[in-house]
Every structure is written in C-alpha cells, then in structure tokens.
Nucleic acid binder design. Structure first.
Length: 586
RNA sequence: GCCGAUGUAGUUCAGUGGUAGAACAUUCCCUUGGUAAGGGAAAGGUCGAGGGUUCGAUUCUCUCCAUCGGCUCCA
C-alpha cells in the first residue's frame, strides 16, 4: 500500500510527462507533493497555457497512467546527469548544487525526471478517479521574484474517488464560512474602491464585535501589568529615518505627506518652501521608544510594558490584499516590553501564557495554532542588526521558554526579522492558508538606533532588551479568522446581537418592549416586521443570533417568553429570570 | 508587482451584435400569524471604466481598474 504522499509525488511526474507529450518544448522546474495534492512548475517559453487547457492535461495523465508503466530509479554520476538533462536548464541548475553520489533520477516510460524519490512502482497503483488537475498560477523559479516566473499547475489527489469527492465537498462547505462572504451576509464590514483598497469600513454589527473584543483586551492587559499608551498616526520623516524604516521599509510605506503648503497651494502646484514630511506609521514602535527616551530610566523601573491598539498603514502590493486578513490599514494590538536581561525569560513566559489565554478565550484549540521559532540565517549574518552575543542569547532563551511552555514549535532558519528572532503563532483560514497572528519578537535595531539606556544598579548606562508583541496580530486579521472559526455563529459574549425578541402579532409589541426593557443590559432588538413568525425566525437564524424570544398571547398572559436557542429547537416557555439562570447569560 | 480567472440591480445569478431579466433584499398595500420563506405592487442597472471595430457594442477587441486563486511579501 502506497503512502498518499508518494502517490501525489508520482502524479507530479506523470503531470510533467503529460505536459511533455502535449507541448514538447517545455522546460521543467520542480514538482513536489503538497498538502492534498501536488504541483509542477513549467517554463512554457513563448507558448501560453490557459485554464481551459487543464482538462486536456488531466485526460492525457489518465491515458499515461493506464499504460501501466513502471517507475525506474537510476543513479547518475554528475556528468552523466548533465547529459541526460542536456537542454533542461532548470534541472541543470539543480544538478550543479547537488553532490556527486546524491544524484538520482526516475524514469517513467520515455519521461525522466531528476528526483530523489520515493515513488510508486507502477502507474497502475494510481486510482485514475482519485485526482484532478484544478488550478494554475505563476510561481517564481526558486521562489525569488528576481527569477523568471514559471507556470505552476496544481492537482489535488487522494487514494480514491470517494476521498477526492469528500475533499472537494469539504472545500465547498469551507467557502460558506469564508469571512468575506459572512462579513457581507452578517453586515459586519465592507471595503470599496472609492474609499481605498485594503481599507476596511466596519458596519455597526462589526463595530460592536470589535468593541467587545477590544474591551476584553484592555481589561486583560490592565490585569496583566501593562500600562496603556497612545500615539499618533503620523510621524515626522526624521523619526522614520532614525528608526531605519525610511531606508529598509520604504516599499511598504505610503509616500510622505508634504507639510510645507496647504492643500490649496498643492492643487495650484505652488512651489514648496520649508517643507517637512510626515509619514503614516507602519508600526508603533518608534513612538513607544520616544516615550521611553523622554526621561532617564532606572533599572528599578523595569520592566515597562506599554500596550496600545495602534492603527498602522502599510502600502501592501495590490495582489497581496485579501479580505480582512491582509489589508492596508489595520490596528495592531501592540505592546512593547522594555526590560533587563535578567527579566527577559520571565517576560517571555508571561507573554506566552497571555497568548495561550487569548486563544483559549476565543475558542481556538492550541493544536489549531501553528508555532514557529524564526531564527537568523546562519550563512548570512551580515544582514542582521545587533551582535552575535545578543542573537545567541535571545534565540536560545526563546527556544528555552517555548520548550518549557510545551509549545509544539517548528524552527525556521532565515525567517527572523532583520532586527531580531521571533516566535510566531499562525492560524489557518478556511482555505487552509496560514496567517500570522500572535508574535513575540526581540528587537536589536531600535534600542541601538535610538540609543535607549537605563542606569543599572552600579550606576552605569546599560541598553535594555526590547520585546515587541501582539496577541491578535491585528484586529482585522484576528476578527477575520474568528468569523471563520465560528462560521459567524459567535458565542453569546461576542455576538453583535445577542437576543432577538419576536412578537407573534402586533398585539404583543407592547409586551415585547416590556421584555426588552427587562434585559436591556444585553445587546438585543425586537423584530416588529408584519411578517409571519416563520419568516422572522428564519431571518434571526440566518443572522446567527444566539437566542430568539418569541412572545405571543400565551407568553403575555403568563409573563414568560418562548425561547429558541440558535441552531436548536425550542427550549420552551420560561420567565426571563429562569432563562438567564438556566443559560448562565451574562 | 507577477501568472491565471472573474466583473450584469444591495446580494446570488440568467441573458443578447439591435441600449436588459429572475429570485432574495428594499419601499408601500393586504395579511396579525405560534418556531427556517403568506400574498400583491412599486422602485432599483450609463451591463467595472475608457478607447477601437461596427450603421449600431453590455455582447467582439485593446488598455486600465477592482475582485478571486496562486507566486513574492506580510500583522
């Protein structure tokens, strides 16, 4: 029995073989198995391929599979390999990087591919109904935008037709909980071109959702020893020059506001005199550093934990924008912790605890959150700020606390920020894409550039350690993922509308108002439409409101309500007091 | 930014080389109802934007814009 991974990888070879048979002059890139399927990169040269070509390719693959040809492994010395792949420039590039002795290829009929395996023995082991070729896109050779863009063809593959169909069905279901779709259906937010792409407009229901989350956030930060700070949306160019953003981050920043003339003068194209430039902040850090540097600091005052829900603006490339998960204006739930070396470990631990607490509070199972320890690229040390000693210490202390906190993390070399190592927490969206949310980062850059100091217990000036951290990452992204996580059916405490009162007929409207008055501490409304009860129930269910209170003549006479809980049948008739007690509403 | 796809009413979608239709939503009227759609009427669209071809373009074509899926990048 073959591993599905192996089948997927073998299918990638068959895809390449099919392309070779269909298009001849194509150059091969690479073709690995991936989650749920496989892909292969091709350079089609001058000829083009479009989406409509995919069925033809799939058909050719099935034809090849039915030939029952075997996968033969071939060991090749380097020179031999270069001969075999004579005109395949991408393959030759890969061969150059391999050591002699490691080079193997697999032969499937006439098709030979550079590959270390493993593979299935024969194409007959593949179920022709278990896969489909469904997508294509561009992809840079070796993942670098400096290289040529190849055409990547994707397939999804499973052991058999049933599993494939189950997967496709699952993806269709997943699309129903897409936050962009639910955002519209539940009237939470929208974006539009006239306002600006990547800039989110939060509707009343989205606004209250945000507010509830934000209130929770403030409360928990105050409980956890943070102080709150508040900083502006724009800052003088000089600040961003000093922080290094002007130099290193300029392609992600909105261009400067010219503040030497009025808008009127600008429109008249008047000459600018004595101009100052201000930039929209892409990060809050330099402002927090400025607060720190505004007065001399003592070791006794550390750690300082300064939190701010700071709205930042980044000029993301158009093709990178996506719903709430990737936008141009977003609010980070930011905090900076400035501390002594001997405090670093405890601070890290408490941030990790805080992060885990947040996930628990919003119903995310820790196993659904992937953790990454992002380290320096050891072969490319010169591109990082700070010194070896600092990096060695911070990388090892991050690893230590992550281990002690039993985080199931993956180490990734070369993924650190230029200014320091970090621990990243990523959540998958409905389409399986990972989005970085919580992050815990060291910064060697700003303390140095802004010459941050404190006086230690020996009376000497010392540079503090600076940690950046965000729990949600950004409100936008986190709420987007939260919408998908709950499929829009938020728990009671988060629901924009918690309770809807539905009078059966117009004779109960007054009573419905009395009921509403009794529970006005909750977020509720009354559906007074002159519609059938069925219609109004349907509407409330589609809006995913947790509790529906139906009041008719009977309830009015008894001083009760008929309760319907979201997604369930009736809970029955009861008094308001009973409902609150039974359902533990607060 | 790059590769591919898509763009018709608020939403989901039909449709056509002779200037557009449905359902739901909206407004009004009738209905006052008992747990997922009661009935009727009205209103709503420079068919993404701008060029080109044509007697005539929403339809064909080009450019641009936006959205979606990837790539790169990222909270």
């Amino acid at each position: 029995m073959n591993d599905i991974e192996t089948i997927r990888h073998s299918l990638a070879h068959i895809l390449a073989a099919a392309i070779k048979e269909l298009y001849g002059e194509v150059k091969l890139g690479v073709g690995p198995a991936i989650e749920n399927g496989f892909y292969y990169d091709f350079d089609f040269g001058d000829s083009q391929i479009v989406l409509d070509d995919l069925p033809k390719i799939e058909k050719k693959m099935k034809e090849i599979i039915k030939r029952n040809i075997s996968f033969e492994k071939i060991d090749l010395p380097k020179d031999e390999a270069k001969k075999v792949f004579g005109s395949e420039n991408y393959k030759l590039e890969l061969i150059e990087e391999l050591n002699d002795g490691e080079i193997t290829a697999y032969k499937t009929g006439e098709f030979v591919d550079l590959c270390k395996g493993p593979h299935i023995n024969n194409t007959s082991e593949i179920n022709v109904d278990g896969f489909t070729i469904n997508r294509m896109s561009g992809a840079y050779w070796k993942g670098s935008e400096k290289n040529k863009m190849l055409t990547r063809i994707y397939g999804v593959a499973f052991a058999n037709k049933e599993e494939l169909e189950k997967y496709l069905e699952m993806m269709k279901e997943a699309e129903k909980r897409d936050h962009r779709k639910l955002g519209r259906e539940l009237d939470l937010f929208h974006t539009e071109e006239e306002v600006g792409i990547g800039l989110v407009l939060w509707h009343p229901k989205g606004g209250i959702l945000w507010r509830v989350i934000e209130d929770f956030w403030y409360k928990k930060h105050l409980e956890n020893g943070y102080d709150l700070v508040r900083t502006p949306h724009i800052g003088n160019r000089k600040l961003w020059e000093r922080s290094g953003h002007w130099g290193f981050y300029s392609d992600s920043m909105y261009p400067p506001l010219e503040v030497g003339q009025s808008l009127e003068e600008l429109k008249n194209k008047d000459e600018v005199k004595d101009s100052e430039q201000f930039l929209l902040k892409p990060m809050n850090c330099p402002f927090h550093v400025a607060i720190y540097n505004s007065s001399p600091r003592s070791y006794r005052g550390l750690p300082m934990r300064w939190a701010e829900t700071g709205t930042v603006y980044r000029f993301e490339k158009k093709g990178e924008l996506s719903g709430l998960t990737r936008v141009r204006g977003f609010t980070q739930d930011d905090a900076h912790i400035i501390c002594r070396k001997d405090q670093v470990e405890d601070e890290l631990k408490s941030v990790i605890d805080f992060i885990l607490f947040i996930y628990q509070s919003f119903g995310f199972d820790p196993s659904s959150v992937n953790v990454y320890l992002s380290l320096r690229d050891p072969n490319n040390k010169e591109k990082y700020a700070g010194n070896d000693e600092g990096w060695d210490f911070t990388e090892s202390v991050l690893r230590k606390v992550a281990t002690e906190k039993n985080l199931n993390f993956k180490e990734e070399e070369g993924e650190a920020a230029f200014y320091g190592p970090k621990l990243d927490f990523k959540i998958k969206d409905v389409l399986g894409r990972e989005w970085q949310c919580s992050t815990l980062q060291f910064d060697f850059n700003l303390p140095e550039r802004f010459d941050m100091k404190f006086t230690n217990d020996k009376g000497e000036k010392e540079q503090p350690y600076m940690l950046h951290r965000a729990l949600f990452g950004s409100f936008e992204r986190f709420i987007g993922l939260l919408i998908e996580h709950y499929a829009g059916a938020f728990p009671f405490w988060l629901s924009p509308t918690q309770i809807r009162v539905i009078p059966v007929g117009e004779n109960q409207i007054e009573y419905a108002k009395e009921v509403a008055e009794k529970i006005k501490s909750f977020r509720l409304d009354i559906d007074m439409d002159s519609q059938t009860i069925g219609k109004k129930i349907r509407e409330a269910e589609m809006q995913k409101i947790p509790y529906i209170l139906v009041v008719g003549e009977k309830e009015k006479a008894n001083g009760t309500v008929s309760v319907r809980k979201r997604g369930q049948q009736e809970l029955g008739e009861m008094t308001i007091e009973k409902l609150i007690e039974q359902e533990k509403l607060a």
